[in-house]
Design a binder for these strands. Structure first.
Ligand SMILES: [Zn+2]
Ligand SMILES: [Zn+2]
Ligand SMILES: [Zn+2]
Ligand SMILES: [Zn+2]
Lengths: 145, 145
DNA sequence: ATCAATTGCGTTATGCTATAACGTGTGTCA
DNA sequence: TGACACACGTTATAGCATAACGCAATTGAT
C-alpha cells in the first residue's frame, strides 16, 4: 500500500509522502528547511524528520528538488520537465542559483560556459566531479532598489 | 589582555584564540568542522563552540579561512598573502573549491571567466551579488585512479 | 584622568539540521 | 513460498550553530 502510484513516464511516480513534500515545496516562494516542511505536514500525519528527509532524497534524485547548500534548505526545481536538472543524463550539467537574502526568492539558471570552464579545470587536474554547487547570495533587483 | 598582538600590516593582528584556531586549520590536510577544531584545542583551554566560531568568523572576515558550505566545514586559505581571497577588495573575486570526497583534500582556485559569466548574469537580472559559493565535490586524481 | 564605546572572552543554555538503528508492511519475481 | 527491494513509522542520537548574559581590556574622545 505504500508503493508509488502510476503516472506519466516523464515524471517518476511519486509515493504519497513524496507528493506531499513536493507540493509544499512547489507552492512556496522561498526555500524551506526540512523541519519547516515537517511542520507544514503535521496535519497530514507527518511526525518525524526522517519522513521529510527520505522524501527529499528521492525528489532530489529525480531532479524535482534542489538542495541549497549555503542555506541548508530545499527548493522545487524551476525547470520542470526540462531534464536539465535530473541526475546524470542532464545535457546542461550544473545548475546555478541566485538567492535573494531579503525576500528569499531563488533564481535558477544554467550557464554552459561556466560548466565548461569548471570542467576544463577539472580535466587539467585529473579531478572527477560528482556534484557541483554554484550559489550566489545577494539582493534581487526588487530588493536592491 | 585579550587584545590582538601586533604583527606585519599585511596579515591582520590575531588574538590568541584566533591564532590557535588558524594554526589547527592550517596544519590540517583536510577541512575541519568547528567541533573538530574545538576538540583539538581542549588542551589549550577551549571549552565551548562559541570560542571556535568567534575566531572562525574573524578569520573568514580576514580572508585567512574559507567556509565550505557543502561540508559545513572550514579550511585555511591556500593563497596566503595574495589578497585574492580577502573580503571586498580582492581583485579576483570569487574563489572556487574542488573537494575530494575520498581523501578530503581541497583544491582552491580562481577563474576570471567564471566570475565574469556569473557577474554578467547578475547584471542582466539586476541581481546584486554579496557572496558566491562554488564547490565541486568529486574525486581527486590520486583517489580516482 | 575619566567616561563611553568597542572588542574579545568565557559560560550556560538552547535551537536547528541530519542520520542511525530497528521493526513493519507491501509489491515483485523467481 | 520465499528472497528481495523498497517505502514507511518511530525512537533515539549525533552534529552544527547561535542567543543571551556578564566580565575584562583597549581605544579614543572629552
Ligand atoms: Zn532544476
Ligand atoms: Zn529579493
Ligand atoms: Zn583563499
Ligand atoms: Zn583524493
Amino acid at each position: 500500500m505504500n508503493a508509488p502510484v502510476s503516472s506519466p513516464a516523464s515524471t517518476p511516480a511519486l509515493t504519497k509522502n513524496q507528493s506531499l513534500v513536493f507540493e509544499v515545496l512547489n507552492s512556496s516562494d522561498a526555500p524551506m528547511s526540512a523541519y519547516t516542511i515537517l511542520d507544514k505536514l503535521r496535519d497530514h500525519g507527518f511526525r518525524a524528520p526522517l519522513q521529510v528527509y527520505r522524501a527529499l532524497d528521492k525528489l532530489t534524485e529525480f531532479g524535482m528538488v534542489h538542495r541549497l547548500e549555503s542555506l541548508n534548505a530545499f527548493v522545487a526545481c524551476a525547470h520542470p520537465n526540462s531534464e536539465c536538472c535530473s541526475t546524470g543524463h542532464g545535457h546542461h550539467g550544473t545548475v546555478a542559483f541566485a538567492i535573494c537574502e531579503s525576500c528569499g526568492h531563488v533564481f535558477e539558471f544554467h550557464d554552459h560556459q561556466v560548466d565548461h570552464r569548471l570542467g576544463d579545470w577539472a580535466k587539467g587536474k585529473g579531478f572527477k566531479p560528482a556534484k557541483t554547487t554554484i550559489e550566489i547570495r545577494g539582493l534581487c533587483e526588487a530588493c536592491a532598489a
